[in-house]
Write a protein that binds this DNA or RNA. Structure first.
Length: 638
DNA sequence: TTTTAGGGCTTTTTT
DNA sequence: AGCCCTAAAA
């Protein structure tokens, strides 16, 4: 009798699933059943008697991790523990929560996002007493992050003057000492600090090596050097590593991901088995032909050609609009046509663009025609001012040494604590070697600050201490409501933002709802757990595919998804490929891979659009048709 | 000393 | 839309 594995997998997939011990790489073309292989393989391992908690699957988004765990558990007919599949970053957090004391932080560390990091770098620059440097705090953050993500690579920083390099080193050092003082880590640290732990504390490494006997890495083409090193260290003893990826879908090189990781796998793991999946189960032939003919123009790739069994299907449609408004109008009428004539649901349709800025005009036209839609990403929920403000309160409650959060809200709503007072407070805290929070608690010793301001500082600290006490016995959603009421945040919003205060209040209500449902799913979760959760959430994670809405997103965000109909807009030289990539061969190939990712999301209908003229920075600008159009179509279009 | 208003600038992609 | 900077009001 055939098992569920033989029944549902083709020979190559089955081979990958049944490979148990030793290194294995699976080159999985777009739509070739990559997720299926991973979930069946996990189920197979467990079926063979391997305990679920000995398996570690690493992905890039929580959504992918959750989906794979769910599918594996429904295959097995029993629930699986959450740690089985997780993101690189949440794995890093888990390691740090257990071991970070070795590195001089405490368990309740906070995770800084990019905005927080930029603020911390500003503080760093300030403490070095630098006037306007050769780069902005934002640029410094990018350079520092880049350096951190290239640990182990011999690429040097892209700076010409060595004086800049020295300066950057100084800023970096100061930034990291601020992070440590604040008991904070940035995104990069979530990988780098576990790596350092593993390198410097062999006992710690051994305990993780012993625990995870089977390691699986999804989207392997997008791992960067530190992530790769982390994985290699974990598998050093048993070499039971399975990586799944597709070099043609590598689109995060700019973030340090290294295509060589997947191309060199066999060198790093001698004797590795390699399986190539070329059978595509997603798209019709004409769509796949277009994608294949596009990607053939890249010189850096492992030769592989996807085959479809789904029949020829519809031709790829091309529409060149005179301007971007006509393009938007075409997108909307196409969506309506697909819904009426092809009986597609809104949720089966997606619009992809190269940059977020392109979404606005599409949204306008969708809104006007009452087509329901959802934008994935953009100004993401957790980066909105009102959300970040309230989260900053929660962070200080969890971790009083968090200076960046303190600076954010100590005067929000206004408590008449301005720049001058803060400077005095900072100077005094430096002198007494106290955190700013501790210094505010002892405001009485601040002789240079007026008595009334001293009182304000003390009562602020007292309030926060009260909240901290309360947090021990109050659920996070209740606590948040109390904070908002106590500080009069809604009233402040109404005063400061008369136009959109209601929207902002709604956002905060949504935040509280998120907490409530998080508590329902995780009854034992405390404030720390919630803060960790929202730090690691990505745009795609918040996308709700069960609602019947047209999806709008960047091509980057579309990775790993599929839709019956896909519209890729703005196929113009300078937009897609992006202007910053035009004069660099490698960057151009990455743009092409990005376009390939977008095109291969489509199951049955693929539309390409471009505008001959587009409003940019207040001026009309004429754009050439993207080279990708002819590479894709090659006379196969309508 | 703090707050407010106005002008300039920004975004390529993100865990 | 939000942030920084500056100058003037409160």
């Amino acid at each position: 009798m055939k098992s569920v594995f033989e029944e549902n997998l083709n020979p190559e997939q089955l081979e990958a699933v049944k490979h148990i011990d030793g290194p294995l790489s699976v080159i999985a073309g777009a739509g070739s059943g990559k997720t299926r292989v991973i979930t069946y393989r996990v189920a197979y391992l467990i079926d063979q008697g391997i305990k679920p908690n000995r398996i570690l699957g690493l992905t890039f988004t929580n959504k992918a991790a959750g989906e794979m765990r769910q599918r594996a558990s429904s295959l097995l007919g029993r629930p699986l523990p959450p740690p089985l599949m997780r993101t690189f970053h949440s794995f890093g957090v888990r390691v740090l929560r257990n071991e970070i004391q070795h590195l001089g932080y405490t368990k309740r560390f906070v995770i800084y996002d990019e905005d927080d990091s930029v603020r911390a770098i500003k503080e760093a620059i300030k403490s070095l007493k630098l006037e306007k440097g050769p780069f902005s705090p934002k640029e410094a953050r990018v350079a520092i992050s880049r350096e951190k993500n290239e640990v182990g690579l011999d690429r040097s920083l892209p700076l010409r003057k060595s004086s800049h390099l020295t300066l950057l080193r100084a800023i970096s050092e100061s930034y990291h000492s601020i992070l440590k003082r604040n008991n904070a880590v940035d995104f990069d640290d979530l990988i780098l600090l576990p790596l350092r732990l593993f390198e410097d504390y062999p006992r710690v490494l051994r305990s993780y090596q012993k625990r995870y006997r089977y390691v699986l890495v999804d989207e392997y083409q997008d791992t960067n050097a530190p992530q790769y090193r982390l994985v290699k260290m974990l598998c050093r003893g048993h070499k039971n590593i399975c990586v799944v990826g597709d070099p043609d879908q590598s689109i995060y090189r700019w973030r340090g991901s290294d295509i060589r990781n997947i191309l060199n796998f066999e060198k790093d793991f001698p004797g590795a088995r390699k399986i190539v999946l070329e059978q595509n189960y997603r798209s019709t032939t004409l769509i796949l032909d277009a994608a294949n003919s596009l990607i053939r123009n890249n010189s850096q790739r492992s030769t592989k050609n996807l085959r479809s069994l789904l029949g020829e299907g519809e031709k790829v449609h091309l529409f060149i609009a005179e301007d971007y408004e006509i393009e938007a109008d075409f997108v909307v009428s196409t969506i309506q046509k697909l819904v009426q004539k092809q009986k597609l649901k809104y949720r089966d349709i997606a619009v992809f663009y190269r940059t977020h800025a392109q979404s606005r005009i599409i949204e306008e036209y969708l809104l006007a025609e009452k087509v329901p839609y959802a934008v994935v990403g953009g100004v993401s929920f957790y980066r909105r001012k009102e959300i970040k403000d309230i989260v900053a309160y929660l962070r200080i409650i969890a971790s009083p040494s968090d200076l960046i959060s303190l600076l954010r809200i100590i005067n929000v709503p206004s408590r008449k604590i301005g720049k001058v007072t803060l400077d005095k407070l900072a100077a005094a805290s430096l002198k007494k070697r106290l955190t700013m929070y501790e210094m505010a608690k002892e405001a009485d010793s601040l002789t240079k600050v007026s008595p009334s301001t001293r009182k304000t500082l003390k009562s602020f600290v007292q309030m926060m201490d009260e909240f901290r006490e309360k947090a021990k016995s109050t659920p996070t959603d209740e606590l948040t409501k109390e904070i908002i009421a106590r500080i009069g945040y809604y009233e402040m919003l109404k005063k400061s933002f008369p136009e959109d205060a209601e929207d902002r209040i709604d956002n905060l209500r949504e935040l509280i709802d998120t907490m409530t449902s998080f508590l329902e799913d995780n009854p034992d979760a405390g404030l720390d757990d919630f803060l960790e959760r929202i730090s690691l959430i990505s745009d795609v994670d918040t996308w709700e595919d069960e609602k019947n809405l047209v999806s709008l997103m960047t091509v980057h965000n579309s990775k790993g998804l599929e839709f019956d109909a896909v519209v890729i807009v703005g196929l113009e030289e300078g937009i897609f490929p992006h202007i910053n990539s035009l004069d660099d061969h490698d960057k151009l190939e990455e743009e092409r891979r990005l376009c390939y990712v977008g095109a291969t999301r489509a199951k049955r209908f693929l539309y390409l659009t471009a505008a001959e003229s587009r409003l940019r920075h207040g001026e009309y600008q004429a754009n050439e048709e993207s080279r990708f159009i002819s590479e894709l179509l090659d006379d196969r279009c309508d």
